[in-house]
Design a protein around this nucleic acid. Structure first.
Length: 202
DNA sequence: AACATTTGCAACCGCGTGCTG
DNA sequence: ACAGCACGCGGTTGCAAATGT
């Protein structure tokens, strides 16, 4: 659903009247032109120098979620949806990490998609307990499956010691050194956790 | 046709973290 | 060591469009 930009709402803040609400095409153009020349950093400065009556935070969000090159919008494919489900199972609500595995997708889009589509799907499934995998079938404390990895991460987050091995999700999912944003490696990894619950299309 | 409700998504907010002086 | 700033993240809100009654 593409909403037409409405007139910017001015904040009632008495100190500095900042534009708020939906961005106009003119604002988008100014921001994109500025970033093309000066780069996307120091968002407060970007906001001022681009002649935008917006806070830096708002500019950053607009750029990352809408104006950035190579952004894919809408039409999340079955493959992408499946990947989101698997990664969410593995990582929980770590939208930026999940988005990092989906080229052209933003964390905001993934989060919205999850909240409006996938969480409902999952709720439906959970109301059908016979279709769920029995807990005892999930291996414990190994990296063999995504479920086990997720479990370990949850423990790790709560500060619990994992006796057999130490598992740091941030290290494990450090994409900074990875050149490619291809899906192959993660698909291979996730194939280890073939889960009929996830692969079953509704 | 008119109104009410739900849906989908852009944008905002608050918080945590890291960097810099 | 500390304060201030910038950035990034996840949760939440607001509102137009879509759908239902």
């Amino acid at each position: 659903m593409l909403m037409a930009p409405m007139n910017s709402l001015a904040s009632t803040n008495s100190k500095m009247v900042m534009n708020r609400g939906a961005w106009t095409a003119e604002e988008d153009r100014k921001l994109a032109e500025y970033i093309e020349v000066h780069g996307a950093k120091r968002w407060k400065t970007v906001a001022m120098k681009a002649g935008l009556n917006r806070c830096g935070k708002s500019c950053r969000l607009r750029w990352l979620n809408y104006l950035r090159p190579n952004i894919k919008r809408g039409n999340i494919s079955d493959e992408e949806e499946d990947l989101i489900l698997r990664l969410h199972k593995l990582l929980g609500n770590r939208w930026s990490l999940i988005a990092g595995r989906l080229p052209g997708r933003t964390d905001n889009e993934i989060k919205n998609y999850w909240n409006s589509h996938l969480s409902k799907k999952i709720n439906k499934k959970e109301k059908k307990p016979e279709s769920s995998i029995p807990q005892e079938s999930i291996p414990k404390k190994t990296c063999d499956t995504a479920a086990a990895a997720h479990e370990m991460m949850e423990e790790g987050r709560q500060g619990a010691a994992i006796p057999e091995l130490s598992f740091d999700v941030n290290e494990f999912f450090d994409f900074s050194t990875e050149g490619s944003y291809g899906l192959e490696w993660v698909n291979k990894f996730l194939e280890l956790d073939e889960d009929p619950w996830l692969t079953e299309k509704s």
